[in-house]
Simulated assay, not measured.
Amino acid sequence: MPGDSQANTDILLAGAAAALTVDLLVYPLDTLKTRLQSKDYARLYLNASTNTINKPTLFRGLYQGVGSVVIATLPSSGAFFTAYESLNHTFAPLPLPTPLRHALSSALAELVSCAILTPAEVLKQNAQMLDGTKGRSTTLATLSHFRSRPFALWHGYTALAARNLPFTALQFPLFERLRQMIWDSRERTGHSRAQAPLYERGAVTAVSAGLAGSVAAVITTPVDVVKTRVMLAAAEEQGHGKVVDAMGAAVGKRKRLSGWQVGREIWAESGVKGLWRGGLLRGVWTMLGSGLYLGAYESGRVYLGRRRGETKEDVL
C-alpha cells in the first residue's frame, strides 16, 4: 500500500463517495428489511383481518432516516478502508495465510467503523419505523428520544459489531479469492489487470463483492435480526421511565435486554423462521450494495491514482 498522504486521501475520498452512492440507491431495501425484522411487524404492517401485507403502510416513507446515514457513512467508510488497507499492508510480511490476513484486517477495521456508525444506525432504524410525524424530520423526531440520554445512541455497538465482524470476516476473504480467480482467468486470455480499463476494474470488483456479500449476508441474518431489535429497543425508553413503541404509544416499562436475551425472545416468538426473517431481502440488498459499493470504491481509487500519473497501482 502506498505510504504517502495523497494515497490515503484517495482511499478516503473513494470510500466515502462509494458509500454515499450506494446508501442512496439501496436505502429503500434497507428500510423494508428493518420493518420486516421489527418486533411490531405483524401489528404495524399486516392487515389484522386477512393477515396480508398492508402495502401502503409498509412501503410508505422508504427514505425515512437517510439523513443520519449520509452524515455518518462518510467518516465511517473512510475510516474502514483506511484501516483495512493499512492493516493489510502491515500484516503482509507476517507468515499468515492470505484469507486470514484479509479476515483479520477487515475485522479490526470494522471495530473502528462501528464506533462511528452505531449512533447513525440507531437513529436510522428507529426513524424507519416512525409514522405520522406531521412534516417533521423523522431523524429529528427520533433524536428527541435521546435528548436526555445521548449515550443510549451507542447501545447497539456490541450488536452491530457482532453482526459486522463475522460478515466482513466471511465477505472479504471470499471477495478477494473470487476477484483473484476472475483476474487470473482474464490474464490467461491476455487481459492485464494493471492495464485494464476503469470500467473493467470496477466491474470485476463489483461482481466479486456482490457474490461474496450475498453469501455472507444470508449466513449472518440471525445476528442481523437481533441487531435490528436491539437498536429499535434503544429508543423505547424516554424520560421518567416511560416507554413507547415505534408509533409513540405507551407500552409500559421494558427491561433492556442483551443480544443473547433478544435472540432467545425471537426464538420463543417465531422459532427459526423469526431468526431468518428478511434473509432473502438482506441477501439481495447486500449483493447490490456490496457490488456497487466496492465496485465504485475500486473505480474511484484507481481513477484518482491514474489521474496523478501513477504507473503502479496497489489493490485492495
Rank of each mutant, 00 (worst) to 15 (best):
137 S>M: 14
201 R>F: 01
213 G>H: 09
85 E>R: 13
68 S>T: 13
169 A>T: 07
291 G>R: 08
41 Y>P: 01
195 Q>H: 15
304 L>W: 05
218 V>T: 07
293 Y>E: 07
184 D>M: 10
141 A>H: 13
177 R>E: 10
78 G>M: 02
68 S>G: 12
22 V>N: 11
312 K>T: 06
153 L>W: 12
12 L>K: 10
241 G>A: 14
144 S>H: 15
78 G>Q: 00
213 G>M: 06
127 A>Y: 09
76 S>Y: 09
44 L>N: 06
306 R>T: 08
208 S>I: 00
102 H>Q: 09
195 Q>V: 05
280 L>E: 12
27 Y>Q: 05
285 W>K: 13
217 A>F: 05
133 T>M: 14
265 E>L: 09
142 T>M: 09
226 V>C: 02
130 L>Y: 11
90 T>L: 07
263 G>Y: 04
60 R>V: 05
158 T>G: 13
153 L>M: 14
47 N>H: 13
41 Y>T: 06
139 T>Y: 10
84 Y>G: 03
36 L>M: 15
124 K>T: 08
92 A>T: 12
156 G>C: 08
83 A>W: 00
178 L>F: 00
152 A>D: 13
225 V>W: 01
255 K>P: 03
68 S>N: 08
292 L>W: 04
23 D>C: 03
111 L>G: 15
165 L>Q: 05
166 P>I: 03
239 G>S: 14
176 E>W: 06
47 N>Q: 13
272 V>C: 03
276 W>G: 11
95 P>H: 11
308 R>K: 10
38 S>L: 12
309 G>N: 04
213 G>F: 10
264 R>T: 01
211 L>C: 06
259 G>E: 07
145 H>V: 03
107 A>E: 07
211 L>T: 12
219 I>G: 07
96 L>P: 03
272 V>T: 07
299 S>M: 12
251 V>L: 05
93 P>S: 13
73 T>Y: 03
240 H>R: 14
41 Y>C: 07
12 L>I: 09
124 K>M: 12
274 G>I: 05
142 T>G: 11
125 Q>N: 08
103 A>E: 15
281 L>P: 02
204 V>Q: 08
105 S>I: 06
108 L>P: 01
174 L>T: 11
13 L>P: 04
